[in-house]
Design a binder for these strands. Structure first.
Length: 192
DNA sequence: TGGACGATTGACT
DNA sequence: GTCAATCGTCCAA
């Protein structure tokens, strides 16, 4: 049995810990599996978070207990997947920005109409590759058809911490985490 | 009820 | 590098 008690940690810690974990998506007869390689933390006291101004019909799932899914529609087009973390009743979550395909690549190629790194190297791409829709917001990720699988934490020296991508508020906070060894990361930090 | 604004992507110069 | 696509959400009026 997987131990997910660490999902109740504050978002930045949970975001770091989610790296290396896997997602298993059941889609009809197909099983898709990916390894998480890039995350971003959003907490309620963060102006960049959807929950900063309190609970609304859209973000209600982020106030559920840790281990639920929060899915939102980005730019009217892309379904982006978050894992709710932190304490129940507090709007806190981790955006899954990129992952490495492990199983079901044929189906991902079909869903994406792309191949290679472009399959899952961005939040909208990942959502599309896994067939995620906003209707899945509030789903318990301990259960099919979208299941989180715990893995050993990445070695700390393997985790790169940077500012988040594509936001205007609180853009300076170091709340993005990625696996330095993955080629599926959406945006790599510039070399010093 | 109107309108500005995205936790993005892909096509194009 | 620039930029349009596209539409739900939220708040001001």
């Amino acid at each position: 049995m997987d131990d997910f008690s660490w999902l109740r940690l504050p978002a930045p810690e949970a975001a770091r810990r989610l790296l290396g974990c896997e997602l298993e998506r059941t889609l009809g007869p197909d099983t898709l599996r990916v390894k998480i390689v890039e995350t971003e933390a959003y907490s309620q006291d963060d102006p960049a978070s959807h929950t900063f101004n309190g609970r609304t019909p859209r973000n209600a799932a982020m106030f559920l207990s840790a281990g639920h899914a929060y899915v939102y529609l980005s730019y009217g087009i892309h379904s982006c997947l978050n894992i709710v973390v932190g304490r129940e009743g507090v709007g806190e979550g981790v955006l899954l920005r990129a992952a490495e395909p492990l199983e079901g690549l044929e189906t991902m190629r079909r869903l994406r109409g792309q191949d290679g790194r472009a399959l899952t190297n961005g939040p909208g791409k990942l959502g599309q590759a896994l067939g995620i829709e906003v209707g899945m917001s509030g789903h318990d990720v301990a259960l099919p058809p979208l299941r989180l699988i715990a893995r050993e934490p990445l070695a700390p020296e393997r985790v790169v911490v940077t500012t988040r991508i594509g936001i205007s508020k609180a853009a300076e906070l170091p709340r993005r985490f990625y696996d330095a060894e993955s080629t599926y990361v959406s945006v790599k930090a510039k070399r010093p």
